[in-house]
Design a protein around this nucleic acid. Structure first.
Lengths: 242, 242
DNA sequence: TTGGTAGAAATTGTCAACAAACTAATTTTA
DNA sequence: TAAAATTAGTTTGTTGACAATTTCTACCAA
């Protein structure tokens, strides 16, 4: 599976950054498999750069937890086990809960209005084409991202947008493409916006935490089903082999 | 101010790691001033290594937010403004609150017993020598670290111990060396341990969040006092100059 | 067959030189 | 005199070669 060569020569981006972005998307999309071994020389040749900037890109990918490293022994793409996904949702609940609380205190009226509009668009999308799940999913992250922004806390925003949301995107690529309960999620989003609009920080945090722990329960269910399917499949494999 | 040369040749540590650790401590301790410009060549010579591994160390320091970088324009040591310190305490409240909740659910009886012992030692320290504030402070972080460990959530632990606690240590070196209300803090620690011992996750989280937001209020006060003192001092400077 | 040990191959860690970009000082021009 | 342009100097970005370490493989012994 060929990774796209770098073409943005006009941009004044550093090589390391370009490769960082490309690799990030490749890992999230699954073009580079989970648990895959990363060999510097190989990747450097593939991207047509030397190992120096590549190593910097890899370090950055390590810092957002997409790669794990063992000194002298190389790097591997992260493997999203169910346990790891649970960790992500737990950290997410804590951070986004706080984010919603701060948003209720600090969000401007204009931003709240924009959020309302966003939710209306989402409602339309669900009505019209409930097949476009990818869009729906990206829309979900957009909602959460705007609240993170409104928290007015740079660190919180960074943690959420440059680390957590990337991992979430990767989870979603991995999990079966089944609809992630878009109608229920939309209703919960509306509740949260209402709490923010009425400046009820306490409630906003509570609703956001419920929203996320609810999402985790759904994902957990899906993972269990997936797991049992895999077991059935491997049983069938065994049968056909005999 | 000579930074120690690398002597641990017996260790199988990579040069980059050694310099990373040394630089981390130097920044936290204030041996390298806040806002100071980092020049790769200069530091590389000081440590007797080439720029390759040094750059890797710098990247890692950037990823734990001790350095900030602008492409092509160099790196600077972070400057801890009051706003930034507030951000740290807010993120801390969210993460450690969750950490305490999980600890209440998952901590083993042995670990709880060990926590009790730790608090007794702290109580003795306060009685005997209330001058040894540094020890007291490190002890405080030790308490919080153990709870983070008990959360059994690798990501949460990493965020707290390798990022947040380092920033906190830096804040404490910066803030005036006034006692950080050790007696009140100890009482609150005891409450938290009680909640964990009785497996009351809800309460443990609430108490931890209160503990941290209370600590922030104290620190905020100190920062304000410090600020007004500085203004008075600079006024005096002006007078003496005339 | 199993287990362990040497050597060979592959991979990561480190270095020093070169290229590109930015900063600052000086000169030129209006 | 002040603003803009140019140029020298410094600093970061990038490269390819070399050194150190690990992993693989083949071989031997039990």
């Amino acid at each position: 599976m060929p990774i796209q060569p770098i073409v943005t020569l006009s941009e004044r981006q550093t090589l390391s950054e370009q490769v960082y972005n490309d690799l990030k998307e490749a890992i999230i999309a699954g073009d580079i498999a989970q648990g895959a071994k990363i060999t510097e020389d190989e990747l450097a040749k593939k991207y047509g750069i030397s190992r120096g900037p590549l190593r910097e890109a890899l370090r950055r990918l390590e810092s957002i937890r997409l790669l794990t490293k063992i000194p002298h022994a190389g790097m591997r793409v992260i493997t999203l086990t169910p346990e790891m996904i649970e960790e992500i949702y737990i950290v997410r609940e804590a951070l986004e809960g706080m984010s919603a609380r701060l948003a209720a205190e600090r969000m401007t009226d204009e931003e709240i209005e924009a959020l309302h509009l966003l939710l209306h668009r989402h409602a339309n999308n669900i009505d019209k084409s409930d097949g476009k799940l990818y869009l729906q999913r990206e829309g979900d992250l957009d909602f959460h991202f705007r609240i993170a922004q409104a928290s007015n806390n740079q660190w919180l925003m960074d943690l959420l947008s440059s680390e957590l949301y990337q991992l979430l995107r990767m989870c979603r690529h991995r999990t079966s493409q089944a609809p992630a309960r878009p109608i229920k999620a939309l209703a919960e989003h509306k509740q949260i916006v209402e709490a923010i609009a009425s400046r009820d920080a306490e409630l906003a945090e509570m609703l956001m935490r419920r929203h996320i722990s609810g999402a985790w329960k759904t994902v957990k269910q899906l993972l269990n089903e997936e797991l049992s399917e895999e077991i059935v499949e491997s049983d069938q494999d065994n049968k056909t082999r005999h």
